[in-house]
Design a protein around this nucleic acid. Structure first.
Length: 1017
RNA sequence: GGGCGCGUAGCUCAGCGGGAGAGCACUACGUUGACAUCGUAGGGGUCGCAAGUUCAAUCCUUGCCGCGCCCACCA
């Protein structure tokens, strides 16, 4: 054997062999009648690459699946990838731009989607290969992709069914609009970030120059201000949305504004002749103590305002365009390309007249929202409608003037407060989200959430750690409708076609010819899995005599076209498919059953669904886990029609952060690439590190030094095996660990049984760190440090029987270590397994050790514990007395009873070798000038004549005595306490007594040693 | 504003009612035939602070201080 394990060379070779022999296939190594155990992989983005989060997530899954596979379960680890709508589209668009190609819009949908497929084919295998490098034992023959034919069919079926059940609906709602990607996104895809913002105070003049007396009072009711005003003052952080105001709201209890409630005021922006008048209304929403107490209501651009507007019947005016280069009527700009160059994002002030209202003045049209804001502020200030305060006030108020120029204190300036505001950002685009009133598709999540909550509440689905259940409940019980339509091209296109309603179709003025505005009223929807099904439906709806066509491309102007003339009935209708695609998570939600073949009733679906464990990070509990629960329970039923959960257990792991707890991010430059670590230290080292740090409920701060440490652990294991090989330790068929006779061997058998049980229990409880750390301590601290050393005299001794037993025992004990370690460190253990001996199966399919607890021999444990303590004691003294490492010294044992004598007889040679003794002698008295090692049951003297440093030895004894004194003092006090004796459990009291007795005996011997030492000097 | 979690050795973290632990780092010594990716020995901690419960508190309770995360509509 080589001196070290060459991971770089071996890992690929070993993995290839596993794959070639079908080791990972569903049911491989399953015992007859085995229970199924199934994990579905959280599908990584198909074009992504492996990051540390994947490494952790998949290491844990692989540990579980390998462990269960060795136990003979019928295992399936179902792999696959996700099409990742926004992320992938973004990547391809960026590539197009980098390569100077035509933009997405210039290419058109079909060409662009083809380009994304191309990119998927080109880069799609990468992440799977990276998972293989990690050692992931997925059944790759079952690899799935969310846009596969089969999975797409599942998506369509789910959509159609939910639509028919009324659980998917279309509606005009305020949604989060991402101006960068020009699509709606769900609430979950919005990150609220605190930024520096400003709040402006403006005056909305009352209509017709009306006035009222404005009275302000302090907390005690004393009047602090009384003046006549012809305006109402509002505070806003978004002046550019003023043009879309539908009202000004005040709290019903706010006496300051009571006189003008119900009156009209004027939005002070734009040409005077076009300014709109809006009502002053009351609503519970405004907080009288905040700002001026009056809030402008812009229902189409603010979620709060939208609520107020809905409650009070206030109209919502959308001010901005959703697309940079498209008009809202859908007609492309003539100079589309030119605009696309000029415009960097959507959400610009609208260029269209909406609802026949000239909302946006000419000079603001087409402007970026923030440019429009600047101009609006400028105009209002110029007109004298900004609220003015003395310059000093602003400073006193701490809001701080940032205006340049010198000003004398007391000069009046516009009131602009600097304050922190929470701004919504798109989680992928990192651009500020614009709430927009648009037509979108929604899932009635609240209805689907009810059983999903119930199945966790009643324990049918368990979260580990359990604390995450609260997070789950909180979100599920306050769930909002899920916006599932995305204005993207990469994804599952919504299976809905639009046509005119029958009423419109039959009653439209026959002279009408050409386009009819599409979204005016929703018209008629045809929802079907396939176009032919849809057409069948449409024929029935419109009648056999109408010619039905489907527009090749979506164009709202052609959404439905009615041709006719004179008094004839229309003859032709053009239907048009909804251009939008579904949220990526819509397909991910089906993953546990779509990957198993649904909607077909496959054997795998019957066998492996519900799946066993889902392993995931907490960051996607809402995105993914919750939605799998909703869809799984809704669509999967047992033979009696009862809902089937998608999984039994959700194991939620932490996020991997850098060494100092920072989230790894490209911009911070603190990303640790798992593949680089694998290159450098091997996959086993990385896996072991992640497992050992996967303690529940905590972030993982990853330090490379750890990985190095566990690589060294692998080397240690390797060399232990090398030692075994060099000493002829070969596995003996039929070896019975119960039959060994040598104390050392009986002891290691017991230790092995203990670590096997501990490892199994840790994995049962998802305590990966306990499993890994326990194995580390066993292999290094017990097997290598002691068993290998203790076995040497036997292996190299003359007693052939003892030697052979030790060889067989060591081979057996090492095999058990390899098996126990295999789920965590699959490569090195597999390699050793093969190198040690020819085997019937690879380690990946070896039997998981199940060792009865009674393999442990308490007498052997006690004896080896004593031997180790003696050796450690002698070594410690040697080191402190600076005895040269090569020197052999004599040992004199005094006060030895029968038990000690026997132990010495049995283990003397062993102790002598490991403690480097020239001989062991039993005596009645410790010789003068000897250093004493105090044991509970004897005193050990090391005569170091000529070597002993009296001062050093005195110091050593004093130190040991001080430590013992502290211990005995505490124990004595405790045992003298009657209430302790009365209240503490018996075994605790007994334990304390034993400990005291031992400590006292040891102290006794130490004191004797000190006396002798003082005699000496 | 609400919720969750965390403050234990220089660093990263286990432990969570009865003897303070690991890895790395550090110090000294050491190549004895498994291993220098190593061995042996050692130093290092009022377990964030305060009060309470208990025979007993790093561990349970409460408060405070510090840090992190999630959710949330204060214009």
């Amino acid at each position: 054997m080589d001196k070290t394990f060459d991971a770089a060379e071996a890992e690929g070779r070993i993995y290839a062999r596993w794959e070639a022999t079908g080791c990972f296939h569903a049911g491989a190594n399953a015992k007859p009648g085995a229970e199924p155990f199934c994990i579905v992989i959280p599908p990584p983005n198909v074009t992504g690459s492996l990051h540390m989060g994947h490494a952790l997530n998949n290491t844990l899954q692989d540990i579980l699946i390998r462990w269960k596979r060795m136990q003979g379960f019928d295992t399936l680890w179902q792999p696959g990838t996700d099409h990742a709508g926004i992320a992938t589209q973004m990547v391809v668009e960026r590539k197009l731009a980098e390569e100077g190609n035509a933009s997405r819009r210039e290419m058109g949908r079909e060409a662009f989607v083809a380009r994304v497929w191309e990119w998927k084919e080109q880069s799609g295998g990468q992440i799977l290969n990276q998972l293989k490098r990690l050692g992931a034992s997925c059944d790759w023959s079952r690899d799935r992709f969310t846009m596969d034919e089969g999975l797409s069919r599942a998506v369509l079926k789910v959509f159609v069914q939910l639509y028919n059940e009324g659980l998917i609906y279309r509606g005009k709602r305020l949604v989060n609009w991402d101006p960068q990607f020009e699509t709606a996104i769900s609430d979950l895809e919005v990150e609220n970030v605190e930024i520096d913002g400003h709040m402006w105070h403006f005056k909305y003049p009352l209509a017709g120059g009306e006035t009222y007396e404005y009275v302000e009072k302090d907390a005690d009711g004393n009047v602090t201000l009384r003046e006549v005003r012809d305006y109402i003052s509002i505070a806003t952080t978004r002046p550019e949305t003023m043009l879309g105001d539908g009202a000004v709201a005040v709290h019903p209890s706010d006496a300051r504004y009571a006189p003008i409630v119900g009156k009209l005021c004027e939005i002070p922006v734009g040409p005077k002749q076009h300014r709109r008048l809006i009502p002053i209304i009351t609503d519970e929403y405004p907080d009288p103590s905040f700002g001026s107490g009056a809030v402008k209501i812009t229902g189409a651009h603010d979620f709060n305002d939208y609520g107020v507007a809905r409650r009070n019947g206030i109209p919502c005016y959308r001010l901005m365009d959703t697309r940079a280069a498209m008009r809202t009527d859908g007609a492309p700009y003539a100079d589309c390309a030119a605009l696309a160059q000029k415009i960097v994002e959507g959400a610009r002030m609208s260029e269209a007249e909406i609802d026949a209202i000239n909302l946006v003045p000419d000079d603001l049209r087409g402007l970026d929202r923030y440019e429009a804001r600047r101009r609006v502020i400028e105009q209002i200030t110029a007109e004298g409608l900004a609220v003015m305060v003395p310059d000093t006030d602003r400073r006193v108020g701490g809001s701080g003037s940032t205006e340049p120029g010198s000003r004398t204190d007391g000069e009046m300036v516009p009131l602009v407060e600097s304050k922190k505001i929470m701004a919504p950002y798109g989680d992928r685009s990192k651009v500020i989200i614009e709430p927009m009133l648009t037509d979108q598709w929604f899932v009635d999540a609240a209805t689907l959430a009810k059983p999903a909550v119930e199945f966790v509440r009643n324990g049918a689905v368990k979260f580990v750690p359990k604390a995450w259940e609260n997070t789950y409940y909180h979100w599920m019980e306050n769930i909002e409708p899920w916006c599932i339509s995305r204005q993207l091209w990469w994804g599952h296109q919504i299976p809905v076609w639009y046509g005119p309603s029958k009423e419109d179709f039959e009653n439209l003025p026959v002279k009408t010819f050409g386009a009819i505005e599409f979204f005016k009223n929703y018209g008629k929807f045809f929802c079907a899995i396939a176009e032919k099904d849809m057409l069948k439906e449409a024929r029935i709806y419109y009648g056999e005599d109408v010619k039905i066509e489907v527009a090749p491309d979506f164009n709202p102007g052609l959404a439905y076209t009615i041709e006719g003339g004179g008094l004839r009935k229309p003859e032709r209708v053009v239907l048009c498919r909804d251009p939008d695609v579904l949220d990526t998570w819509f397909s991910s939600a089906l993953w546990p059953f779509s990957t198993l073949g649904w909607p077909d009733q496959t054997p795998e679906l019957a066998r492996y669904y519900p799946t066993s464990v889902l392993v995931t990070g907490f960051d996607i509990i809402f995105f993914w886990v919750a939605r799998m629960m909703m869809d799984g329970l809704h669509f999967m039923k047992d033979t009696e029609g009862k809902p089937l959960k998608p999984f039994d257990t959700v194991y939620v792991h932490a996020l991997v952060r850098d060494e100092h707890g920072k989230k790894m991010s490209k911009s911070l430059g603190n990303v640790i690439d798992p593949l680089e670590l694998i290159d450098q230290y091997g996959a086993d080292a990385l896996r072991f590190t992640l497992a050992s740090m996967a303690a529940m409920g905590r972030d993982i701060k990853l330090a490379v030094s750890r990985v190095e440490g566990y690589r060294n652990f692998g080397t240690k294991l390797w060399n232990a095996a090398r030692f075994a090989e060099m000493n002829g330790c070969r596995p003996v068929p039929g070896f019975d660990p119960r039959g060994v006779t040598q104390t050392v061997n009986r002891w290691i058998v017991g230790e092995t049984a203990r670590i096997a049980a501990a490892t199994h229990a840790a994995l049962e409880g998802f305590r990966f760190n306990d499993a890994a750390n326990g194995l580390y301590a066993h292999v290094w601290g017990v097997f290598c440090d002691w068993y290998v050393e203790l076995s040497k005299p036997l292996l190299q001794g003359k007693d052939a029987e003892a030697r052979d037993e030790t060889r067989a025992t060591m081979a057996w004990a090492l095999d058990q270590c390899l098996k126990l370690l295999h789920p965590v460190m699959p490569f090195i253990t597999e390699e050793l397994w093969g190198q040690i001996a020819p085997r019937e199966t690879m380690l990946v399919h070896a039997d998981w050790p199940v060792l009865p607890a009674d393999l442990a021999d308490p007498a052997a444990d006690a004896e080896m514990g004593w031997v180790i303590k003696v050796i450690e004691g002698v070594r410690s003294i040697r080191a402190e007395m600076n005895v040269p490492g090569g020197a052999q010294i004599p040992m004199v044992v005094t006060g030895a009873g029968e038990a000690v004598s026997e132990r010495l007889a049995r283990n003397g040679a062993l102790i002598g070798r490991l403690a480097r003794l020239s001989g062991i002698e039993l005596a009645g008295q410790v010789p003068k000038g000897a250093v004493t090692l105090a044991m509970e049951d004897c005193a050990i003297g090391l005569p170091l004549a000529g070597v002993i440093d009296v001062a050093a030895e005195t110091a050593r004894l004093e130190k040991a005595l001080a430590k013992l004194g502290k211990e005995t003092g505490g124990l004595e006090a405790k045992l003298a306490n009657e209430r302790f004796l009365a209240n503490a459990p018996e075994e605790v009291v007994a334990e304390q007594r034993d400990r005291l007795a031992a400590a006292l005996a040891e102290r006794e011997r130490l004191e004797a040693a000190r006396r002798r030492l003082s005699d000496l000097s």
